[in-house]
């Protein structure tokens, strides 16, 4: 094998490289990731025992190889699997966190697909969020359909699709908080694109799962994965953190400054955001206010990349995320401790 190849890696790069997320957000990402990996190691130990290491390593390699299998989709491009939900359905959410972490680490180190400093954030997006959102959606939809095979497949589709939507929303918020992409553009663009990519992910997850269900139903052990209650708290924390980061800037004391900048931004943002054929009332643009575009989620929010307000937004967002996340992890730990006590009595 030649030492350095000029051609791009076979699977298209899909993780963010260094430089696109702010340093402080990246460090917060690493802290959250390390805590989650620690929790995942503790939670999976009882589930799989010493078998877990070869199993998770080889399943990680299979997810990686599975990501290389393309299928043609309309528009001349090809789609492929990401696999977080599939891994979580088969192995349970905690084991899936470890598998997906290994996948992101290998892709970042060996293939330079994803930066090293931002690796924590990439693991959160590609591993932690997809595993938990996918798994819980799957469980709940499946229960809704009384655990039938159809319900299982519907749950897998919904889980895989939703996991991509949520993770793309997170990525957009992270880009906006880092000052790389304005929220008004990043959020609708990322969520919009991923609501289509998510269909591919959903279909692949469903067909892969139905194949496994037909050939080795005994492998679907994720059903009995422990630490589900704890995992539920983590999911709640993640979603709360997203909600807070999305809406915190509206309550920011710097909103005057933000609005001033938003005024300057109004016209270009409007052009960028408005879908083709969507007429923008001219007065609205001149008033510095956005039109009633269906994508306007945060009308007055624009992330400035210069000045104090930018730093304050980043810090505020990060603190919010960390507090909520810390609470969730704390609750998760408490729940597990209580469970252990119940078992011992």
């Amino acid at each position: 094998m030649s030492p350095i190849l000029s051609a791009p890696p076979a699977p298209p790069p899909m993780h963010a490289p260094d430089g696109f997320f702010s340093v402080w957000l990246s460090i917060a990402g690493w802290i959250i990731t390390l805590v989650m990996v620690g929790l995942a190691i503790r939670n999976t130990r009882s589930q799989l025992g010493e078998r877990q290491i070869p199993l998770m390593g080889i399943v990680g390699a299979a997810i990686f190889a599975g990501q290389m299998l393309n299928f043609t989709i309309p528009g001349g491009t090809s789609g492929h699997l990401l696999g977080g939900t599939l891994a979580a359905i088969i192995l349970g959410p905690w084991a899936s966190v470890l598998v997906m972490t290994a996948v992101v680490v290998v892709q970042g180190l060996l293939f330079q697909d994803g930066g090293l400093l931002v690796m924590g954030i990439n693991i959160i997006n590609m591993g932690i969020i997809t595993s938990f959102v996918g798994y819980f959606t799957y469980r709940h939809v499946k229960k809704l359909f009384k655990d039938s095979r159809g319900g299982m497949l519907a749950g897998a589709f919904a889980g895989a699709w939703l996991s991509l939507i949520v993770t793309s929303a997170f990525a957009a918020v992270e880009l906006a908080v880092s000052g790389t992409s304005p929220m008004g553009i990043a959020l609708p663009a990322m969520v919009g694109v991923h609501s289509l990519i998510g269909v591919g992910e959903g279909l692949l997850t469903v067909f892969a799962l139905s194949f496994i269900f037909a050939t080795r139903p005994d492998l679907l052990t994720g059903e009995a994965a422990p630490g589900q209650k704890a995992a539920g708290w983590v999911l709640t924390g993640l979603l709360l953190a997203l909600a807070i980061t999305l809406f915190a800037p509206l309550a920011s004391p710097y909103s005057d400054g933000l609005e001033r900048i938003a005024e300057a931004f109004a016209e270009p943002s409007e052009v960028e955001i408005a879908p083709v054929g969507f007429a923008v009332p001219e007065e609205a643009v001149f008033n510095g206010k956005f039109g009633e575009s269906p994508y306007e989620i945060l009308p007055d929010y624009t992330v400035p990349f210069l000045g104090e307000s930018g730093a304050s937004t980043i810090v505020a967002g990060m603190i919010g995320v960390l507090i909520v996340f810390g609470t969730a992890v704390g609750l998760a730990t408490l729940t597990r401790v209580r469970k252990k006590e119940e078992l011992s009595t």
């Binding site: 080889i58 190889a65 599975g66 299928f71 279909l203 892969a208 139905s210 194949f211 496994i212």
Partner: peptide
């Protein structure tokens, strides 16, 4: 493609 991924996973297991 989904079945290929499924079979890849079964073989990995």
């Amino acid at each position: 493609t989904g079945r290929m991924i499924g079979s890849l996973l079964v073989r990995a297991f």
